[in-house]
């Protein structure tokens, strides 16, 4: 099926009736996925947005449960359940794969995170193939395809004045059905697209997993310029760490979770004040090992870096993960210093 581009707004209106529709928008200069109708401009050509769409499943701040107490007794305790339907429209292959990664973390290995899983059940994803790449995009080096996101519910491809529309799941079929009045017969193949930035992951994960790497000089050298801000982790579509805290007022309150960053000193600080990751060397090591080695080791689903390039573009000191990958790739053997 195909959707003429001049019917896009009508399609948005239809979808927005069914669910909270998130589309790429530019708001106050920031591109991100925001509700259709929010104040700002539609940014379908943003390639990947400055902020990733992970907020839809894993909000930066999420209330978990609220309670009331009387003296020392709990009077009421209620889980806060968000059950609104959501559609993310225009998600790119890299960000779609970031959801696959978060699914592994939040839904597998014996624990289902109910907050995430409710949102995921109620989410429909509409991916759109890229027609151009940014200088920082390297998703195809990480095993993805800029024009196809196989796990999305619906795949769109930009073919000039229309989008080719393909349902890929049951949810996707339901959505295509909803849009049926606007769709026309027809099809078309998206032109293949390659990223200009290339890295070679061959052997990198294995080298990094080698115990000799842990004390390598590479970490100090790499981390020296890091200023320990949270930019890389907060713009990353796959960083999923959070902290849980409470807010209490009188005899009622709520608990919330909020994004945390392994780049912050406070992240690993223990109650007694000891910090097992005392300096940026240990913190950068953790981030890169988590992205490029540990995730594959635990879940066997490839790297936790999807190659979106956001951290490369936004790090204030240009600490570039792609240059790090090259550097590890070029090492004669794990643990050697050249």
């Amino acid at each position: 099926m195909k959707l003429a581009k001049n019917k896009l707004q009508q399609a948005f209106d239809l979808m927005a009736k069914e669910a909270n529709l998130l589309v790429p928008m530019k708001i106050e200069g920031v591109t991100k996925f925001a509700p259709w109708g929010a104040e700002g401009e539609l940014a379908m050509d943003a390639v990947n947005t400055l902020l990733p769409p992970k907020d839809a499943l894993f909000p930066q701040t999420e209330k978990m449960y609220k309670y009331k107490t009387r003296l020392t007794q709990v009077e009421s305790l209620e889980e806060i359940k968000e059950t609104d339907k959501q559609i993310i429209f225009g998600i790119r292959s890299c960000d779609m794969h970031s959801i696959d990664c978060m699914d592994e973390v939040f839904l597998t290995r014996g624990y289902v995170d109910s907050f995430y899983s409710r949102k995921k059940e109620n989410l429909t994803t509409v991916a759109i193939g890229c027609t151009k790449v940014l200088p920082t995009c390297f998703c195809d080096s990480m095993g993805l395809n800029p024009v196809a996101a196989p796990t999305a519910d619906v795949q769109l491809n930009d073919l000039g004045d229309y989008y080719a529309v393909k349902a890929q799941t049951e949810k996707g079929e339901a959505l295509v059905n909803l849009l049926k009045p606007l769709l026309e017969e027809g099809d078309g193949e998206a032109a293949a697209l390659e990223c200009t930035l290339k890295v070679n992951m061959d052997g990198v994960q294995k080298k990094l997993m080698n115990v000799k790497m842990f004390e390598s000089d590479i970490w100090q050298e790499t981390a020296q310029k890091c200023i320990g801000c949270g930019t890389c982790t907060y713009v990353c579509p796959t960083c999923y760490c959070f902290d849980i805290e409470g807010k209490e007022c009188g005899n009622e309150g709520y608990k919330f979770r909020c994004w945390d960053s392994c780049m912050f000193s406070e992240y690993t600080r223990m109650a007694g004040g000891h910090n097992p990751r005392p300096s940026k060397k240990e913190r950068v090591r953790n981030r890169f090992l988590h992205k490029l080695a540990y995730f594959e080791d635990r879940y066997g689903k490839g790297s936790l870096c999807v190659g979106c390039g956001r951290c490369v573009a936004d790090c204030p000191v240009d600490l570039d993960i792609t240059m790090f990958i090259d550097k590890v790739g070029a090492l004669k053997e794990a643990g050697s210093n050249d």
Partner: peptide, 26 residues
């Protein structure tokens, strides 16, 4: 409303040179 609280502004700032920032006094 846009601020993501990455603290890049603080961490890059030469005047923000406290050994422990009030933000981190959790």
């Amino acid at each position: 409303d846009k601020c993501i609280r990455c603290y890049a502004c603080r961490n890059v700032c030469p005047a923000c040179n406290c050994r422990e920032c009030y933000v981190d006094q959790y």
